[in-house]
């Protein structure tokens, strides 16, 4: 898979709303293949929506994060049911860890989610995630864009579940939901830096279990200190199906707050520009080495190097034909 004819054909099938083309393009994006063509495809879909649903402003990208075993997959499964009941389409990118030794992965999120083979408005993809920064796979932004361009109103990202320090999701998601559960440690555990700072919403999951009150109280004390931004705390029980509608409502509210989405859009655009710039530089091949030498020896100024790369960026965008 690498030839131009094939990727063109895939893009055409995608534009004709072929679900398997979407599936294949997600694989290519996850492997970092044909990135330019795919970017161009989602860019075009954004600029010229093919049907009413596409590009609609009510799109949501929600990240669900929290420690392993806290109930992320189960909650995502419940959210799928609630959202479908409300008539929204939903796609899920479910991440699980990939072994740094063998490259293998056991992706076991989807079996906790409802299987709705008859329902075209639900799409679930499992993703292996190498360790390292952020616990979300590379190019996930592009995969989200593909799903949105295909028409999914909600995209839910389920993170690996590293728990602490999982901050990279912030750039991709409009709303970050952090799950905690009863009996998960004392209150100093919550004081550690990292995840709590990026959470927009904290869910005390498994709220039917004893100890939920205590955890909720601890977290409320923590997030409502003077001078902190206010973070809603909700109790949800996937087991009892309680608090799910309220959770969806809160996510809607947070996602619609323009401050959040404007700043995250800016962050996303910034990331995109950075990535494209570096990519253009790398695509210069032998010319890049010349630039490096010239720059190192002082023959070329910073600006002259930038100009070369920018020129490359402009010429490398795939033409529309």
């Amino acid at each position: 898979m690498g030839n131009r004819q094939e990727i063109r054909e895939l893009c055409q099938r995608f534009a004709a709303h072929d679900r398997q083309a979407l599936s294949r393009l997600l694989t290519l994006a996850s492997r970092g293949e044909q990135l330019e063509e795919i970017r161009h495809l989602v860019g075009a879909a954004r600029a010229a929506p093919l049907d009413g649903q596409r590009g609609s402003p009510s799109r949501r990208v929600v990240a669900i994060t929290g420690s392993p075993g806290v109930g992320k997959s189960t909650l995502v499964g419940r959210l799928i049911e609630v959202l479908r009941h409300q008539g929204s389409s939903v796609a899920v990118l479910a991440c699980d860890p990939q072994s740094p030794l063998t490259g293998g992965a056991l992706l076991g999120d989807r079996f906790r989610m409802p299987s709705r083979p008859e329902d075209p408005q639900v799409f679930i993809r499992s993703l292996a995630t190498p360790g390292g920064r952020g616990a979300i796979p590379e190019h996930i932004d592009l995969m989200v864009a593909l799903l949105q361009a295909f028409g999914f109103a909600w995209v839910i990202l389920e993170t690996v579940g590293a728990g602490q320090g999982e901050t990279a999701v912030r750039h991709v998601a409009d709303v970050v939901v952090l799950l905690v559960q009863p009996e998960a440690g004392d209150d100093i555990q919550w004081e550690k830096a990292g995840l709590f700072e990026v959470a927009d919403l904290i869910v005390v999951h498994k709220a039917d279990l004893p100890g939920a009150d205590k955890v909720e109280a601890q977290i409320r004390t923590l997030v409502n200190l003077p001078g902190c931004r206010e973070v809603p705390v909700l109790r949800v029980s996937s087991h009892q199906k309680e608090g799910l509608e309220e959770l969806v409502k809160q996510i809607e509210i947070l996602a619609s707050q323009s401050r959040t989405s404007a700043s995250s859009a800016k962050a996303r655009l910034r990331d995109l520009l950075r990535e494209r710039f570096v990519q253009a530089f790398e695509q210069l091949g032998g010319q890049a080495e010349e630039l490096v030498r010239g720059w190192e020896e002082g023959r070329l100024s910073d600006e002259e190097v930038f100009a070369e790369v920018i020129e490359r960026m402009a010429s490398s965008s795939p033409s529309a034909n």
Partner: peptide, 22 residues
């Protein structure tokens, strides 16, 4: 990369999984 779909699947749900997981 093993996608574990688990117990009690129907032929329909398995085929959907294969399609969406590529």
């Amino acid at each position: 990369h093993v996608i574990y779909a688990g117990l009690w699947q129907t032929p329909e749900s398995v085929v959907r999984t294969v399609a969406d997981e590529d």
